[in-house]
Computed example of a mutant assay.
Amino acid sequence: MGDRVSYAFSASQGPSPEGGDTARTVEGRLTLDVVSVQAPWVWVRVAYTDAAGGALPSTRLAKDLVVPVRSDETRPLDVPHSGTASAESPSLAGRTWEALRYVSDQRPVDGPLRSRVYANDSGPLYLTRGLLEATVETAGFRTPGRIQLSLQELNEGSPATRTPVPALERPLGPGAYYDRKVDIAPTHEVARVCITAERGYVLRTEGPVGAGGAPCSDFSQAEPEPLEDLLMSLPWEVLSSGDWPPVGASSARVTFTAGSRSVPAVTEQRPEDVDGTQHVFSETYAADPWASELAGMPYEARFQPLASGTERTGAGGKRESVGETRMVNWGPWLGVQ
């Protein structure tokens, strides 16, 4: 309880080889704080801030997130490090570590150059599997970019300290779920995405909502993703996805409803001729992805369309639905089963 790990991060993208854009950057601190322990769960608060601890201007990184992580395993989890390994002894966060650097160079096939340094004994870095440093560089035909993470601070807490479990109002993902209704022929179903975390890995399942049974009770077939991979991806998405909400000047303010929830939103419609038939494509996004009406929604769902659909113009100018997807439910599954 009270364990704290802080990394300096920086990410940059662009300009693209074709020109027409400018370089984009974001940098600051990524901090993981253990705020509560209720075996087998460890509750972690994740925050992206500037170097002084203040809020970042990006909407996507503006709020801290809660991540419950199981300290045990419900099944064996092992994602081997990729790349060529070499021994190192870096000095970071006031101590010298015995570590291995893993380098994977996929640039010859238009892939990234990845370099990561992991401590041989993860010890207090158990949440990120011993990660000390990480760098990813993109090249080839894509927009050039780079993201870097480096351990800055490490504090070990006291096992005697006890604090209440925090509410899952802004979950990164683990401990929460969301349901999306899909009406696009031939698929007509409600699909559920469930997310959990165990010993530094994130597990995610997606499938039709079944009748009866506890939600999100089976992760036996989920592919494990290292938590540090997910944490590194968030600053990258800030640069690649742009401002929020991702709509143009023609957007309209609306209210999106899901059950008893009413969410302030924006909708944009885009007409397009498809094989001689006029179609209208629409997308609806939360006006504020951190609105209280979205409490309990996993991070990834907050930055997806709440609804998207396609209509075609039929005889007499009447619009006919071609297909639609929309968010219908979300919230924590942990603690409510």
Rank of each mutant, 00 (worst) to 15 (best):
Q152L: 13
T161R: 09
G145K: 03
A134Q: 13
A119L: 06
N120G: 15
G123Q: 09
P186S: 03
V165E: 06
L132W: 01
Q148V: 14
P166Y: 03
D179C: 08
T187F: 04
G140F: 00
I195Y: 10
Y118C: 00
I147F: 11
A167Y: 00
T187Y: 03
Q152R: 13
L154A: 10
I147H: 12
L154I: 03
A191G: 02
P166N: 09
L172Q: 06
T187K: 07
E189W: 05
L154C: 07
G173L: 03
Y126E: 10
P174A: 02
N155T: 14
G175K: 04
R170L: 13
Q148G: 09
V136I: 12
P144M: 02
A139P: 00
T143H: 00
V182T: 13
T135F: 01
G157S: 03
A191S: 10
L131D: 02
P124N: 01
R129A: 05
G157F: 08
N155Y: 10
L151Q: 01
I195Q: 14
V165R: 13
Y178D: 15
I147K: 11
Y118F: 15
E133R: 15
R192A: 01
E133N: 04
V182D: 08
R129K: 12
L168A: 01
V182Q: 14
G175R: 06
N155R: 15
G175P: 02
